[in-house]
């Protein structure tokens, strides 16, 4: 074993950690908006699969990953619309609607792939974009500024989401709808409309997270490509206490732990790999258990809005 943690290895662990955090960050920021408006969407995993397929398929046939990104956003929006129809308009139990959406998305993405692609096919996905000057900064440059465009997008979305949520009137409405929908309604806020908007925006981001997997990482598609990442993203929303910076922290912590365990395995440090693989999950639970105490959730989370009734 040559377990010297030299700077090249540390840079690799950190750069990989940032890359791995991207799908979680995108999906979790989306889910944050959704939950802030009072709806929890357990179907993120299914939306991600559809986004992964759409991104892959558009890139394959149109030859441009950017069009793949657009396709994943559109498909994400459609899935969000479906979820909104079921959980907002029809006021269905949100947890089970989400599981239904998850099954539907998993099945449909697999079906479409088989019908219109079939067989392992690889695509030319997004390339790393070196940011001039910044990428030359020693140590930090290769970690933060030599990534693909979706990584930058995800990172930029953190302050942007914070701004939207806390500084714009729309963000204020979202928070009001998620906490006291009746009061918001009395003040003239269209609760249903806000929830539709949040579900659609949230699902677009989930679709984008899926596209990151196919056109930003794997450069191919396979059944069940998300492998549980959507559920982790939901968990990270809770971990991040519904705040963009908290979600960033959670995504990074989780992904850095994952990146670290990969390197530990690769360097042959004697450590049962199962323990290494579960490390990120344990870290997340422990961090949540010891550091925060009572978490704050949108008060109306999970409760369908019925005009004229209370609670």
């Amino acid at each position: 074993m040559e377990g010297v943690m030299n700077s090249a290895i540390i840079i690799s662990i950190l750069a990989t950690g940032i890359r791995l955090a991207t799908p979680y960050l995108l999906a979790a920021l989306g889910e944050m908006f959704t939950q802030r408006s009072g709806v929890y969407n357990l179907g993120v995993e299914g939306i991600m699969m559809m986004g992964a397929f759409a991104g892959f398929f558009a890139t394959l046939h149109l030859g441009s990953p950017l069009l793949g990104i657009i396709a994943s956003l559109i498909i994400g929006a459609l899935m969000g619309l479906l979820m909104a129809l079921v959980s907002v308009t029809f006021k269905a139990e949100q947890g089970i609607s989400g599981i239904g959406l998850y099954m539907f998305g998993w099945g449909l993405s697999g079906l479409l792939y088989r019908l219109y692609v079939g067989g392992i096919t690889s695509i030319d996905g997004l390339k790393e974009v070196k940011i001039p000057l910044l990428s030359n900064i020693p140590f930090l440059g290769p970690i933060f500024f030599n990534q693909n465009i979706l990584v930058y997008t995800a990172l930029a979305l953190v302050p942007l989401s914070g701004f939207i949520l806390y500084k714009t009137s729309w963000g204020l409405n979202v928070r009001a709808v998620g906490n006291k929908p009746e009061a918001a309604d009395t003040l003239g806020v269209n609760v249903v409309r806000i929830r539709y908007e949040c579900l659609i925006v949230g699902s677009m981001l989930a679709g984008l997270a899926g596209a990151f997997l196919t056109i930003g990482q794997a450069n191919m598609y396979a059944d069940n490509i998300t492998a549980g990442r959507g559920f982790i993203a939901i968990a990270l929303v809770y971990f991040g206490r519904w705040s963009p910076w908290g979600i960033l922290l959670g995504s990074l912590l989780f992904s850095m732990a994952d990146s670290f365990q990969s390197m530990v395995q690769v360097l042959g440090i004697n450590f049962p790999y199962e323990l290494a693989v579960i490390l990120p999950y344990v870290v997340t639970i422990v961090a949540l258990a010891i550091s925060f105490g009572r978490v704050w959730a949108p008060a109306a989370l999970g409760k369908p809005f019925q005009r004229g009734t209370r609670g």
């Binding site: 290895i9 690799s12 791995l20 490509i225 390197m263 395995q265 690769v266 693989v277």
Partner: peptide
Amino acid sequence: IAYTGSFNDIVGAGNLAKTQMSA
């Protein structure tokens, strides 16, 4: 030798391969 812990996670395998190569 490193393991992803999954039989079918191609994204995880891709990342593990990248880590292998960077090491």
